[in-house]
Design a binder for these strands. Structure first.
Length: 802
RNA sequence: GCUCCCGUGGUGGAAUUGGCAGACACGCAAGAUUUAGGAUCUUGUGCCGCGAGGUGUGCAGGUUCAAGCCCUGUCGGGAGCACCA
C-alpha cells in the first residue's frame, strides 16, 4: 500500500468537488432545506489566521453531515470589505482601496479553498461591489421613507486620529475601536437610525429563537429595558413640571432633593429665575472639558451646584425640596432629571452627604449612618404606604396613586441609543441623500440607485473631519430630485456595519438585479437555521442585522420577523503563548503554514479537537501531531482489511455506539468528543486486528466531515464507489449500542469496593444479590447491619451499613 | 460597582447533568525496530506509599447513601455593562 500524499490528494479532491458542483445549493429543491451561516470575514491584508478556520469548521462539519443526511444545504461565504483598515492602507501606499480589496479577497479565497471548506462558491458576496451596495442603499432609503432615519446636531464621539464620528458601540471605554486613541466629544450633524423604536421588538423576538443563553443575555443587557414610572414634580413659581423617570416610585416619600443634568433645557428657559445662573454656567464649562469617558468612568467625588430661587415640590407630600445640577445625571437617559432618594440609592446618598441634604429613611432594614439601603423592608414615613413590606406591592400601590392623581404614570426606558450612521470616510456606501436649500434633505429616487462611489485620487479625510467625497465637485453638485434647484449631495458614507446587516439575505439570490432577493427564494430558504460567529459580534452586528431584518419584515419585504433561528459562538484560538493572537505580539498562526506541513485534514481536525468549541484555547503545535498520527493510522486501516461482510461481532456494538456518539456530538457543538470517539474506535479496531469493508466504509463516512480529503481517497482506493461528499450518513440501532455484559461498581458506604460483571439487562434485585456475593464486598460489610441497598441502573450498587 | 462565565494530572481537555474522576490526545519513562537521527510499534504514567492501602476536581463549610456537578462563604482568572435614576 502506498503512503498517503496529502499534497496531491487534497488538491485533487478540491478540484473534483468543484467540477462536480457537489456543494452548490439548489433553489426550490424537493429536499428539506438547511441554511448554515458563518460570519463573513473582513478581508484584511494580513490574511486569515487559524481563528477563522475554527469559526468556519464548526458549521462545515454540520453541513457536510446534513448533505449526507439528505438535506439541500446552503452554506455560503462572502466578504465584508468596506472599512477603515483597507482605506488606511490605501492612504499609506497610494493603492486604490478597490485594488487592495480585490487583492485581499483573492488571498482569502485561496486560503479558504486550500482548507477544503464546502462553501457554495457560486454565491460569493462582496459588500463593496456595486450590485450589492445598491441594495444596501435601497434598504437605507426605505428606512428614510418610513421615518427611521433622522438628522440631529448633537455631541458625538469623535476620534481625532481616524477623523470620524463613532457610534457608542465603536467607542466603548472612551477609546476608538479602530485605533484605540482617546475619543473626544464634538458637535456634529449626524445621521441616526431610529433603532430604539425597535427595542421592544428586538427584545420580544428573542423568545422565538434559539440563541446560546449568554448571547441572549448580552442582547437583553444591551437593549437594557427597565420599567418604572414617570413622575411630574411642580417647580415653584412656574407653570412647568419637572419630569423624572424612576424605577423606585415606592420611595417617593423619601425624596429630599432633585438633580438635573447640566444640559437640561429647563435651565436656560428659567435662567432669570435662577439667582446663581452664573454658577450654572461655570459648572457647565467645567463639565464640557471632561470627555464622556471621564464623566462616566471615574469613580470620583460627586460635584454639583445647588440652584438658588428654583425649587420643586414633592407631589406626594407637598414638601418643598431643593434642585441641584450635577453631571452624574445624564441628558441621554430618562428625562435628564432625577428624584433623589439618598436613603435608598447610593449615588444620591453620596451626593446628600457631600452637600448636607436630609436623608429620610422610608424602608427599614439599613443603617443610614453608613450607606444607602436598597433591599426590601417595612415602609415608614410614607403615608399610605406605611406598613407595606414588599417592594413590588409598594410600587403597584404608588403607580395606582400617581395615575389616579394625574401626577405620573408607568413608564419604560431603554439603555440602547439610536444608531449614529455616518462616517466621514471614503471606503463605504455613499448615503443616497441630497441637501436642498428649499426642500431640506431629499432622498435620491430609487431608480437612480446605485449611487456610485466616485473614483478619487486622494482618500485623506479633510482636516475638519470632512469626508474625502466633499472635495469632489462633480459628486457634490447635483439638482434636487424634488424641485430641480441646484443642490448638494450628502458626502458621508455608511459605517461598516451597514453591509453586514443584510448579507445573509443576498446569499439567497446573489445575482438578482431586480430585487435584493427574490421573494419565492426568500420563502424557500426562510430563516438561517444555524448561525455561528464570534462573541464579539453579539451586541453590535447581531442587534443591527436583527433590526434591519425586522424592518424589512414590517414593510413586507421578507417572510420572517427574525433572521436567525439558532445562534452559537466559538471560542478564540489564542497564540501559543496563551495570549490573544495579534500582529503586534507576533503570535499569529497562518493556516497556510499549517496546511503546508500537515495538510488541511489535520488542520481541520485539530482546530475542533483542541478543546471545547465554545471556549478559548491556546494553539499547541505538538498536540496537533496527535491529529497527524491519527490520520496516518486511519490510512493504514487499509492494511488490515478483511473480506468479512457487514459488521464483525467483535466490533458491532462499538460501531453503533460510535455512530450514535458522533451523530449526537456534532449537533451539540461537541466536536472534540466526537473526534475522541473516532480515535477510541480506531484503537479498538487495531486491538481487534482486522476491519471489514462495511466497518471501514462507516468509519471513513463518520470522519469525512472532519477530514474530507483522506476519507475520499480511501473511499476511491477501496472502490466503494461514488464520492463521500454525496454519500449517506450511517445509521445506528439503539438495541445494538449495548453490550451483553456490563461492568458495574459496588460501593459500601459510598466507597468503591469492587467491580463486577453482570448481564446488561439485570434487575435491581439481581444486581444487589451479585454485589453481596462478592468477597471484597462481604469483607467490607462484615458483621455490620445493612441499612440500605441502592442500585443505579447499569452503573453501580451502593450498600449502606452501620 | 453590577451581571454572567470559568477554576479538574506536567499540558489541552473528558465525565451520560447527582452515580466508577482523569475518556481522547500531547508530554514523559522503559522496551522493540532502526547504522544513526526521525518515524513507527508495545507497555506504563493523578499524587503519597516497596506494599496493603491512603488520598485527590482552587480553598473552607453544608446537603446527600453518593458531590467536579447542588447550597453558603472565600480566593483566583476571564467576558460584558458601567453614575441607566
Amino acid at each position: 500500500m502506498e503512503s498517503y500524499d496529502f499534497k496531491v490528494s487534497e488538491k485533487k479532491w478540491q478540484d473534483k468537488w468543484e467540477k462536480a458542483g457537489v456543494f452548490h445549493a439548489v433553489d426550490n429543491s424537493d429536499k428539506k432545506k438547511f441554511y448554515a451561516l458563518v460570519e463573513f470575514p473582513y478581508p484584511s491584508g494580513a490574511g486569515m489566521h487559524v481563528g477563522h478556520i475554527k469559526a468556519y469548521s464548526g458549521l462545515e462539519v454540520v453541513t457536510r453531515k446534513r448533505r449526507m443526511e439528505g438535506y439541500n444545504v446552503l452554506f455560503p461565504i462572502g466578504f465584508d470589505a468596506y472599512g477603515l483598515p483597507t482605506e488606511n492602507y490605501a492612504i499609506k501606499t497610494g493603492i486604490h482601496p478597490r485594488k487592495v480589496t480585490d487583492m485581499n479577497i483573492e488571498k482569502f479565497t485561496g486560503q479558504l479553498k486550500r482548507v477544503g471548506f464546502s462553501f457554495d462558491w457560486t454565491r460569493v458576496v462582496d459588500t463593496t461591489e456595486i450590485g450589492y451596495y445598491k441594495w444596501t442603499q435601497w434598504i437605507f432609503l426605505k428606512m428614510f421613507e418610513k421615518g427611521l432615519v433622522f438628522r440631529d446636531k448633537t455631541l458625538v464621539n469623535y476620534c481625532p486620529s481616524c477623523k470620524v464620528v463613532l457610534s457608542n458601540e465603536d467607542s466603548q471605554g472612551g477609546k476608538c475601536d479602530i485605533c484605540h486613541s482617546d475619543v473626544v466629544q464634538k458637535s456634529k450633524d449626524v445621521w441616526y437610525l431610529r433603532i430604539t423604536e425597535y427595542a421592544d421588538k428586538l427584545l420580544e423576538g428573542l423568545d422565538s429563537v434559539d440563541y446560546l443563553p449568554n448571547v441572549r443575555l448580552q442582547q437583553e443587557n444591551w437593549i437594557g429595558k427597565s420599567t418604572g414610572a414617570f413622575v411630574n414634580f411642580t417647580v415653584k413659581n412656574t407653570d412647568e413640571m419637572l419630569r423624572i423617570y424612576t424605577t423606585r416610585p415606592d420611595t417617593l416619600f423619601g425624596v429630599t432633593f432633585m438633580v438635573m443634568a447640566p444640559e437640561h433645557p429647563m435651565l436656560d428657559k428659567y435662567k432669570d429665575m435662577i439667582e446663581n445662573f452664573a454658577d450654572v454656567e461655570a459648572y457647565r464649562a467645567e463639565c464640557a472639558k471632561k470627555t464622556e469617558f471621564e464623566r462616566t468612568q471615574l469613580v470620583k467625588e460627586k460635584t454639583g451646584v445647588k440652584l438658588q430661587g428654583f425649587c420643586a415640590v414633592n407631589p406626594v407630600n407637598g414638601k418643598e425640596i431643593p434642585i441641584f445640577i450635577s453631571d452624574y445625571v445624564m441628558m441621554g437617559y430618562g428625562t435628564g432629571a432625577i428624584m433623589a432618594v439618598p436613603a435608598h440609592d447610593q449615588r444620591d446618598y453620596d451626593f446628600a452627604k457631600k452637600f448636607g441634604v436630609d436623608i429620610i429613611e422610608v424602608i427599614k432594614g439599613g443603617d443610614m449612618e453608613k450607606e444607602a439601603y436598597t433591599g426590601d423592608g417595612e415602609m415608614v414615613n410614607s403615608g399610605f404606604l406605611n406598613g407595606f413590606t414588599k417592594k413590588k406591592a409598594s410600587i403597584e400601590k404608588m403607580l395606582e396613586y400617581l395615575t389616579e392623581k394625574g401626577i405620573g404614570e408607568k413608564g419604560v426606558q431603554y439603555k440602547m441609543k439610536d444608531w449614529a450612521f455616518n462616517r466621514q470616510r471614503y471606503w463605504g456606501e455613499p448615503i443616497p441623500i441630497v441637501h436642498c436649500e428649499k426642500c431640506g434633505t431629499v432622498a435620491v429616487p430609487y431608480d437612480e440607485l446605485p449611487l456610485k462611489l466616485p473614483e478619487v485620487e486622494n482618500f485623506e479625510p479633510g482636516s475638519d473631519g470632512e469626508s474625502p467625497l466633499a472635495k469632489i465637485d462633480s459628486f457634490v453638485k447635483c439638482t434636487c430630485p424634488k424641485c430641480g434647484a441646484p443642490a448638494r449631495r450628502e458626502t458621508d458614507t455608511m459605517p461598516q456595519w451597514a453591509g453586514s446587516s443584510w448579507y445573509f439575505l443576498r446569499y439567497i439570490d446573489p445575482h438578482n438585479s431586480e430585487r435584493f432577493a427574490d421573494m419565492d427564494k426568500l420563502k424557500y430558504w426562510g430563516m438561517v437555521d444555524w448561525y455561528n460567529g464570534g462573541m464579539e459580534h453579539v451586541t453590535r452586528h447581531l442587534i443591527y442585522s436583527r433590526f434591519w431584518h425586522r424592518f424589512l419584515y414590517d414593510i413586507g419585504e421578507v417572510p420572517n420577523p427574525e433572521p436567525y433561528a439558532k445562534r452559537t459562538a466559538q471560542g478564540l484560538i489564542l497564540g501559543p503563548d496563551g495570549e490573544k493572537m495579534s500582529k503586534s505580539k507576533g503570535n499569529v498562526v497562518d493556516p497556510n503554514d499549517v496546511v503546508d506541513v500537515y495538510g488541511a485534514d489535520v488542520l481541520r481536525t485539530y482546530v475542533l479537537f483542541m478543546g471545547d468549541y465554545e471556549k478559548a484555547a491556546p494553539w499547541n503545535e505538538s498536540s496537533m501531531k496527535g491529529c497527524k498520527r491519527f490520520m496516518d493510522r486511519v490510512w493504514n486501516l487499509q492494511s488490515i482489511l478483511t473480506d468479512g461482510e457487514g459488521y464483525s461481532s467483535k466490533l458491532e456494538s462499538s460501531m453503533h455506539k460510535t455512530i450514535k456518539k458522533v451523530t449526537e456530538d456534532i449537533e451539540a457543538l461537541k466536536y472534540n468528543t466526537a473526534i475522541a470517539a473516532l480515535m477510541t474506535l480506531l484503537n479498538e479496531i487495531y486491538d481487534a486486528g482486522s476491519i471489514t469493508k462495511a466497518e471501514l466504509k462507516t468509519f471513513i463516512t463518520l470522519l469525512n466531515p472532519f477530514a474530507p480529503h483522506i476519507t475520499e481517497e480511501i473511499n476511491e482506493a477501496q472502490g466503494f464507489g461514488g464520492m463521500l461528499a454525496n454519500g449517506t450518513w450511517p445509521v445506528y440501532e439503539d438495541a445494538k449500542c449495548v453490550d451483553a455484559e456490563i461492568e458495574i461498581a459496588v460501593q459500601v458506604n459510598g466507597k468503591i469496593k469492587a467491580r463486577i460483571k453482570v448481564a446488561a439487562d439485570i434487575d435491581e434485585a439481581g444486581a444487589i444479590e451479585a454485589a453481596l456475593a462478592n468477597d471484597a464486598v462481604k469483607a467490607a460489610v462484615d458483621e455490620k447491619s445493612i441499612v440500605k441497598k441502592l442500585y443505579v441502573k447499569g452503573r453501580l450498587v451502593n450498600i449502606v451499613v452501620k
